[in-house]
């Protein structure tokens, strides 16, 4: 019997993972991206040996990649970027804050399933995959690796993780220092933060070649059992507020949630972040494939 508050996480079965990996194979293979202006781009930024272009230095970047000649010429630190190889590095950032644990941990279970499926599919294609779980700090880290044995390590990590039921905030920015040479980053979370994590997403975008954001959303977030006046407790901050649990309150919350999602979506669109708002009631396979197809199309 599980202890109260413990979320019983279950990973997808291997046949299911293999089916998904087969379906997503074409979407996860590195493709020559097109740059704006319809000019065909033959190369892509990534981890490799062939020099591609330059960009401004950002804190956390590898110092050894600073192009000192360009830095002297432009009088600001300039970083040398390299051409991506066909097999790239992926880092999954998993939101393990307390907001993921409410309503029976449905969002957390959905996030774990997507992370497992995505890891399996990427490792199946030969990519290197790492995992970071974050809350108010970095909660767990699985370094990048290759092969199915590495999937087992990631799966163990996922099964061992449990979001705290109370008091664990969402600070996506704590992952930034750990993203060295990350080519693709995939963020899984509910993005329920003060600014919908837009600031942290912007910072991450500077450190990777491709950034994906998949928002877990549950209708239960904006539903209340009609029980008269209730005290609502914020899972992360612990703050309380008195609310009359009725349809009007639910409508207000749903509107606020929709606005937050819209803001996040607009931000992602502006910054070239592949974004998907996934209502977790829908099948994760469908949602993930939709996201990958959309990201592929936007590349």
């Amino acid at each position: 019997m599980a202890a109260p508050g413990v979320i019983r996480t279950q990973l997808p079965a291997e046949p299911e993972l293999q089916a998904f990996a087969a379906a997503a194979a074409q979407l996860l293979v590195e493709r020559q991206p097109r740059s704006p202006g319809l000019r065909a781009v033959s190369r892509r930024v990534g981890v490799g040996l062939q020099h591609l272009d330059h960009r401004d230095y950002a804190p956390g970047d590898e110092v050894r990649h600073i192009d000192w000649r360009q830095t002297a010429r432009l009088r600001r630190p300039i970083l040398r970027r390299f051409e991506s190889e066909s097999v790239s590095d992926w880092t999954l950032l998993l939101d393990a804050s307390s907001s993921m644990s409410v309503h029976g941990g449905a969002k957390w279970q959905a996030a774990v399933q997507v992370a497992a499926a995505l890891s399996f599919a990427l490792l199946h294609l030969g990519h290197r995959v790492g995992l970071l779980a974050f809350g108010s700090q970095l909660l767990a880290q699985c370094p990048r690796g290759r092969g199915q044995r590495h999937y087992a390590a990631i799966a163990r990590q996922l099964l061992a993780l449990q979001p705290a039921p109370r008091g664990e905030r969402s600070e996506l920015g704590v992952c930034a220092p750990s993203l060295h040479d990350a080519s693709s980053v995939f963020v899984l979370g509910d993005f329920l933060a003060d600014d919908a994590m837009c600031r942290d997403l912007g910072a991450l975008r500077q450190r990777c070649t491709a950034l994906h954001a998949m928002q877990m959303r549950s209708d239960a977030e904006t539903r209340l059992v009609p029980a008269g006046e209730v005290d609502l407790v914020d899972a992360e901050s612990g703050r309380q507020a008195r609310v009359m649990a009725d349809a009007q309150a639910e409508a207000i919350a749903a509107t606020a949630r929709a606005a937050m999602t819209a803001r996040l979506q607009a931000f992602c669109l502006r910054h070239g972040i592949a974004f998907t708002d996934w209502e977790i009631g829908q099948p994760w396979r469908w949602a993930l494939l939709q996201h990958l197809m959309r990201a592929r199309a936007n590349c």
Partner: peptide
């Protein structure tokens, strides 16, 4: 009153 834990209080 009944205390309900929510994902984000700001929504309400």
């Amino acid at each position: 009153r009944q205390a309900l834990t929510v994902s984000r209080l700001a929504l309400w």
